[in-house]
Each structure stands twice: as C-alpha cells, then as structure tokens.
Amino acid sequence: MNDFDPPRPNDEANPRDSRRWQELLDGLDVAELTATFVERVASITGYDSSPLPTSEIERSGRLAFSAMLQGLRSGGLPDFVPIANDVGVSRARAGIPITSLMTAIRLDYNVLWEALTSASSPSDAELLVRHTWIVLRTVDEYAAQTQRAYMAERERMLREESSALQGRIANLFQDHRSTAADRLDAIAAELRIPRDAPLLVIGAAGDDIPALRVYISQTERSGRAVYTHYLGDILIAFMCSFDLDGPHATEAGRSLLALRVGIVTAGRGLSDLRAAANTTRDLTRTITSDDDTAITWNRGWARLAKLDLQQSRNGLLADVDNALARCGNTERARLMECVRSYLRTGSVGESADELFCHRNTVSNRLHRFAKLTGVDPTIPEQSARLVVGWS
C-alpha cells in the first residue's frame, strides 16, 4: 500500500463485516447489472454508432460484471482477466475511441455502486464506506487491463495496415498455379517460418471473428506469430502447426478447439496454404448454430461431401428416408439412434454400453435397419452414405 491508498477494512478481524459484504454481493444480479449497463452505454459517443451488435455488448457485459463481482469477493482481480483482454481487442477492432471505452468502464463503477446501495440498508452505510476502496480498485484494475489490450491491438492494426508484408501474404492466396520458389523463400524469410513447415489454417465468420481475434492476440502474447488474411467474408489466420489434442496438446490447442472455427493443416507449408485456406473457408461456412466447438477436417469432411452432393442434386438418403417413414415413430427413433451410435463407435459392444442395452439388441437393430433400407451400416462402402447424409 502506498501513501495514497485509502485505508482498507480488515475483514479477518471483523468477520461480521465480511459476512454482510458477501451477502450484499450475493444480492446483485449479473443480468440486471448488464441490462442497466447496455441501456446507458448506448448514449456514450463512439458506442452510439458502433458496429458492435447489442448481443456482443451484452455478452461482454455479463462476463465483465461476473469477473468484477469475483474481484469484489476476493479483494481484487488476477493479473490477467480474459474478458478484459477480449473487450480491449474487440473495441479496438470496432474503431471505438479509447476515451469512449474508458467512459464505458467508468459506467461499470456507477452501475455496481448503485446496485450495492440499492441492496443495502441504512445500517450498512459504514460497511459501504469501508469497502469503497475495493470497488474502486477492482474497476481500476479491470480498466487498466482493458486499456493495455486495446493499445496492443491498435499497434497490431497499424502494423497490419502499413506493412508491405500483407501484400505479399495476399499474393499467397491469389489464383496462381504456383508461386515461384524464390518468392516463397522470400515470404517465408519475412514470416520467419520455414517454407515447408506445416501450418495450422483457421477460419472464422461473422460473430465468431471477434473470438478468433482475441485468440490471436493471446497467442501472440505467448510469442507465437499469427498472420491473417480475408477470403471474402471469412477471416483466415495461419501459424506454425502444433498439437491440438492428444498427449502433447497445449492449452493453446485446447483453447483453439473450443472456438467456433474451421481448422485445416497445410502439410507442405506455404505451398499448400491457398488450397488449405479454401478448404478452411468451406468448412467454416458449414458451421451451424448447433456447433459450439471447432470443425476440423476429421469432423467436417462429411459435411463438405454432403454439400457437394446436394449441389449436384443427388438425393443421397432419399431411399433411406422413405423406407424409415414406413416404421412407427418409436421404432424409427430407436433404429436411427442405434445406427448413429454404431457409426460413431464402430463397435457393437461400445454401442451396447452407450445405449444401455444388450449386444444382441444392437445387432438386431442394425440387421433390421439394413433389411428395411437396403443400406447395411456394418459395410463401410454402404455406411459412408449414412455418415455423409447425416452429417
């Protein structure tokens, strides 16, 4: 504590203070705090014409208030708060002035303090005075982290705008039959990666782009270089490949797989980048509202195959659907559940365990499905139709 820090309450010496403070915090509703904030922030210059959708402001508001309430409970925020980094990056990308961002964060304090005073009784007046410092400190710590992330992202944006390298990167995505080896060597040298080093190629669209931008910012903070380019409406990012899952997976890999993005590996590095980026773009466009994690090639190849078949107007499963329509609803549901499980596990025993039934029941249902539809799920060449059609 320096000479300018206000006196702080000693909750350990005064457990009654601590209990009552926690009770007041328990009475605060994150949804109500967020609604008040969203209503008021719209009047701040920079937010009144911001490209940020209201849903994004609501999402980040909920996470910010949740983080700050946790800080109020524990005496302060940790050194790195993900939502502070998220807000700093996304507001910089949205073109919101730093002064407007700081005004919005000061609004967080007003909303919190009003909620605390509303939840308190007259006998809590001295308690609130004794805890004023923690509210100020928590909001100030959140503001400082957000500001640092904002300024770092602004610097990155300036580098992107001014760097001639972006033009060379764009050249990699153009429709050339091949890029001269010496040109690839020059670009690889500027990127500081081996020309033939495998690359992870990641794509995001629409409302999923801000989350990928935040991931890129966090990844670069760890010292890993990430490069970006737009293919139409899809943001493509690429970097040197690393394990996403398995025994050697890192937190960076697990975090990436948790995003709603498409992911493909360019096995031969920059030579394969354009083809991999096109595949990533197509995978990204198959993401639906039901998806909440990344679509890798292993997860998404069937979707692309299905899309190609639909575009060629081939009725991939029309005969199967017609055959199953002749079943009762209960039988149809059980048959499809059983076949989907078997296609996923490849094992009668595992499917039996998954469905809580006997192995013979699974075998009988697979046989019944094959007899009804003419498609045997146990024969790979025939089951491929089901895998693609149900993807």
Rank of each mutant, 00 (worst) to 15 (best):
M1N: 12
M1V: 05
M1S: 13
F4M: 13
R8D: 06
D11V: 15
A13M: 08
A13T: 09
P15Q: 10
R16N: 12
D17V: 04
S18T: 11
R20I: 06
W21Y: 06
L24E: 09
L25C: 10
T34P: 07
A35R: 15
V38T: 11
A42D: 14
G46N: 03
Y47W: 14
T54Y: 02
F65E: 08
S66E: 15
G71T: 04
R73Q: 08
L77I: 07
L77K: 15
L77V: 06
F80P: 00
V81I: 11
P82F: 06
I83R: 08
N85H: 14
D86R: 12
T99A: 14
S100N: 07
R106Q: 13
V111D: 02
S118I: 02
L127C: 08
L127D: 13
H131A: 07
V139D: 10
A143N: 04
T146H: 10
E153Q: 13
E155Q: 14
R159G: 14
A164L: 08
A164H: 11
N171L: 14
F173P: 03
H176S: 11
R177T: 10
S178W: 02
S178N: 02
E190N: 07
L191F: 01
I193Y: 00
L199D: 04
L199P: 00
L200D: 10
V201D: 01
A204R: 04
I209K: 09
R213I: 00
T219I: 02
R221V: 11
H229S: 01
F238M: 01
P247D: 09
P247A: 03
H248R: 15
A252R: 10
V261G: 01
I263K: 03
R268P: 03
L270I: 00
L273R: 01
A275M: 09
A277V: 00
R281S: 07
L283E: 11
S289H: 12
T293Q: 09
I295P: 00
R299C: 02
A302S: 07
A302D: 00
L304F: 07
L309M: 13
S312M: 10
R313M: 13
R313Y: 07
N322K: 10
N322E: 11
A323R: 05
T330Q: 08
A333D: 08
L335Y: 06
M336Q: 14
R340E: 12
Y342S: 09
T345M: 09
T345W: 04
S347G: 08
G349N: 14
A352F: 03
D353N: 14
F356D: 14
H358P: 08
N360K: 15
T361F: 07
V362K: 03
R365S: 02
T373E: 05
V375S: 03
V375M: 04
P377H: 10
E381C: 00
Q382G: 03
S383C: 05
V387S: 05
G389Q: 12
